[in-house]
């Protein structure tokens, strides 16, 4: 900043006002995170102390150990469940959605626009409208209570991620596919050897998005899963909170440790995330 040309006084004041405003807004946005984090390391009494204490003193690390050993909140097991659930879905999404997205974005065929139009409709369709029959079918097969109903649909693809990936596939120049055709590559080989290697970054972006969405998914696991041991963290935290509403410090520690992996993942891959976002908007 100091090496810049000397700003006029009015521009200086403008800049200061801007940053003051933005920092104030940022504080509002960050407050819940901050409060969650410090409450996770306080006792219940300390959480509700008046006047407000802005730093836990002492830091109650025992909240963490107590959370990890509680029988009514099998946090470790649920964490593993969440990792499995989000990870599997992310991998499946990358594979299945890239097939359809390639077809919509790079290949010309009759009916393509119709099928893609239907995909957009599927994307806009409220989940619940199609949910009950699917639930009844799974329950008939006897697979409720397992992760099959939660994961299987992603073997086929997902409207949102297909839509998102298609934007990237559309960026692959047609000439490249033509060059590969002249070189004698089969359509499958073109997808796998020519197109996919160029879309590594978009695929990682989509995988990250799928991870976050699945990690935070609440409705489907709430309905399909019955065992505390089988819950992912979102449902586990909900169940614990609704049964032990007064144990705020444990709830906060749970919320903190549920949110932490996603925040960490985001901070590590920030650049990619933002690229993915600008592509979800309509071109």
């Amino acid at each position: 900043m100091s090496r810049q040309r000397k700003a006029t006084p009015s521009a200086r004041i403008g800049m200061l006002t801007y940053h003051a405003l933005m920092l104030a807004i940022s504080a509002v946005f960050l407050l819940p995170f901050y409060w969650m984090t410090i409450s996770a390391f306080k006792t219940n009494a300390e959480i509700f102390s008046n006047p407000v204490t802005w730093l836990p003193d002492p830091i109650r690390w025992e909240n963490m150990t107590s959370l990890l050993t509680r029988e009514d909140f099998p946090f470790v097991q649920q964490f593993v469940n969440s990792v499995f659930y989000a990870g599997t879905v992310a991998v499946l999404v990358c594979l299945s959605c890239s097939l359809a997205a390639y077809s919509f974005g790079c290949l010309r065929w009759r009916g393509r626009n119709l099928v893609f139009g239907l995909t957009v409709c599927a994307l806009l369709m409220p989940t619940i409208v199609t949910f009950l029959p699917i639930y009844l079918a799974w329950s008939k097969i006897g697979l409720t209570g397992t992760y099959w109903p939660l994961i299987t649909p992603f073997l086929f693809g997902d409207a949102f991620f297909i839509f998102m990936l298609r934007q990237f596939f559309m960026g692959v120049p047609r000439e490249l596919l033509d060059a590969a055709r002249l070189d004698g590559a089969s359509e499958f080989r073109i997808w796998w050897q020519i197109v996919m290697p160029q879309l590594r970054t978009p695929l990682i972006i989509v995988g990250l998005f799928a991870t976050v969405y699945t990690w935070n998914e609440f409705f489907l696991p709430l309905i399909y899963l019955q065992d505390r041991e089988a819950f992912p963290l979102s449902v586990g935290l909900f169940t614990f909170q609704s049964q032990r509403a007064v144990e705020w410090s444990v709830s906060m520690m749970g919320a903190f440790l549920t949110a932490l992996p996603m925040v960490a993942l985001f901070l590590l891959t920030q650049r990619l995330f933002q690229r993915g976002l600008s592509s979800t908007g309509l071109k």
Binding site: P173, E175, L176, D178, A179, A180, R181, L182, D183, G184, A185, I194, P197, Q198
Partner: peptide, 19 residues
């Protein structure tokens, strides 16, 4: 099919495989 015609093509935007 294109590859069996004995033709080769140079494209406007080169169309080199970037990876």
């Amino acid at each position: 099919p294109p590859a069996q015609r004995g033709v080769a093509m140079v494209f406007q935007n080169y169309a080199l495989y970037p990876h």
